[in-house]
Design a protein around this nucleic acid. Structure first.
Lengths: 342, 342
DNA sequence: ACTCTTTGTGGGAACGTTCCCAATATGAAC
DNA sequence: GTTCATATTGGGAACGTTCCCACAAAGAGT
């Protein structure tokens, strides 16, 4: 908190130039300033300890060069790695990236939506739990969605191909001899994971001529508590050992905590039941046993989201784009090879 | 991107009042406006789809009501939980909290320092790797440090009592019969963890009359790679099994990855070697075996940091405060009870 | 010498909001 | 009726920077 006001006026006075010249020296756009004048201004800046007020610049230029990345769960490395990739991509372009943590809360989302609407950010990259897609569309600021939303056909979107990712998890379980596969996904947002993953799951079962047991479709929060709940629900399923030989989870956090919860009851992943995660966060290779999972290419997602946002900032009226990247299997030790038993 | 300019002037015109009256309606400070006028203004706002420009308000009031939390490793739940506590504390006070992820990079820190200096944030809460403490002191914006820095005696600080936290880890190991304790800490920042934890470590050994083997002081990055490096360095230590019976790690991430790395060589935590972590992040109870660790009260840290920042914003010249909270043991299964063998 | 182009500089106004102060009206107390 | 206090409103200026446009000077070409 400087007691002495130091704006470009004071710098201009000391350097013996106009405020326009000072502005030309300090602003990103610049302009022609002679070398001699440049030095005089820089010396005055240093002498006075002047610091540019970018709020003022932002008001004049209508640009803040700040981008908000709204992520629902900071503690999940999946999201933090996406944020990092966004950062790596946007910073060289002159943008500062900050993270808004929404904690899966619609109220917290609203708070950041308000900031975005009120000229605080030049763009927003987000994953959202809101059912009110129009809210995102009407932000009045360039936005890129991470993760498929069937209701968001006219918002730029980047993500993993949920159908394909779920499918390769199912395929791997099938190929390793599993026939009684349970699916654990999320009921956040009515048209989200539930329908896409459930669809892939049902399609696959149908394609292989396997029966669909609706009770094997679990809906839990995609966090640690959800993983614990999943284990409990599974154990509470009547005659579950006869009905379930494997579990495909909506993310690694759920898979890991379910795995550890089941161990408390003597049920060991990779021995008694097979478990497959989704994401391939760093922790999944650190579990015991290491978790087989479907890797989501989060760096690619982050980079693509950032690039799409840059494009949208340059051309607000350009065509909507959607980039879905395939997942890939990361085979570790949590899946039993049941083919030996056939 | 509205094509039609809608500022308070347009609202005022439609509502048949002055811009001052519109400002009184929309601004946080408010002012007296008759009920009838209030409704007219609100109707005009809705009709025009007006959105307040808080960048403009920020320039006038010299306040943005945004607080930056700079954290070095978003993927470490320790930091994300602190950020959440900060958020929970500051949001009801009218501040919006955003996270700047520095990724242990001094260059990235600098970037956010610049934003802070240039009037973008009302306050900053940070952990920092920079050796240039004056940089933080001269931010010109209220700042609260998380984590002890001996060089930062005149910056508000909140953290865990590193000496005490290290001590109770050592005590627990000692009481369970360990006499050859190795310490893994970080060399980030020359006066940081290394000296405080090393000091507590050396003091404790001295107090118990135990010999100090300098080779048992490991310095690694406090991340997953560091944990792997730690395991390798330990195994590369000549005659290590005779020299080390336990390992106190600088954080849980290091402990967990070291534990898993050692397992690859048939060395099992809780059976062949004892391992204690630091932090008690959620993952530490999910390991196999679950990790004994020193819990850092991150919610308390986050709340205290936020409160200290509020105080600093209100009174920039008030006395410097420092709050160090004690760690507490979270005893799980990674420590061998060696007392039976004495 | 004259014309054209480029470089460099300065002043004014814009950006959108808030706050200060003056003016007016109303109500209560004497 | 007079005085005082409060509620309400409006206009101007401030906040700090950028950009537009005008002007002057210098250099190159004819």
């Amino acid at each position: 908190m400087n007691k002495q006001k130091i704006s470009i006026h004071e710098v201009a006075r000391l350097a013996g130039v106009s405020k326009s010249t000072v502005s030309r020296v300090i602003s990103d756009k610049g302009g022609s300033v002679s070398h001699e004048t440049l030095e005089r201004v820089h010396k005055a800046i240093e002498q006075l300890g002047y610091r540019r007020n970018i709020v003022a610049a932002g008001l004049r230029t209508q640009k803040t060069y700040m981008v908000l990345v709204m992520i629902p769960d900071v503690a999940n490395p999946f999201w933090s790695e996406i944020a990092r990739a966004v950062q790596d991509t946007l910073e060289p372009e002159g943008y500062s990236v900050v993270i808004g943590s929404t904690c899966w809360s619609e109220e917290r989302e609203s708070r950041y939506y308000e900031l975005a609407q009120m000229a605080r950010f030049d763009g927003v990259i987000l994953n959202s739990v809101t059912d009110n897609i129009d809210l995102i569309k009407n932000l009045g600021v360039p936005a890129v969605l991470i993760g498929e939303r069937t209701a968001a056909q006219n918002i730029d979107t980047v993500g993993t191909d949920t159908l394909q990712a779920t499918r390769i998890g199912m395929e791997y379980l099938y190929e390793t001899g599993h026939r009684k596969i349970a699916l654990a996904t999320s009921d956040h947002g009515s048209e989200r994971y539930l329908s896409l993953r459930a669809r892939a799951y049902k399609d696959f079962l149908h394609e292989k001529g396997l029966p669909l047991d609706p009770a094997l479709l679990f809906s839990v929060n995609l966090d640690a508590e959800g993983g614990q709940a999943l284990a409990k629900q599974l154990l509470g399923l009547q005659d579950w050992t006869a009905r379930v030989d494997s579990l495909l989870c909506g993310n690694d956090i759920v898979a890991i905590t379910a795995m550890n919860e089941l161990r408390k009851y003597g049920i060991i992943a990779g021995i008694d039941i097979s478990i497959v995660g989704m994401d391939d966060v760093p922790a999944s290779s650190q579990t015991y046993p290491p978790l087989t999972t479907v890797r989501k290419p989060r760096e690619r997602i982050g980079v693509a989201a950032a690039q799409l946002l840059l494009k949208r900032i340059c051309d607000p009226l350009g065509p909507v784009e959607k980039h879905l990247f395939p997942g890939e299997l990361a085979i570790r030790d949590s899946v039993i090879d049941r083919r030996k038993k056939r």
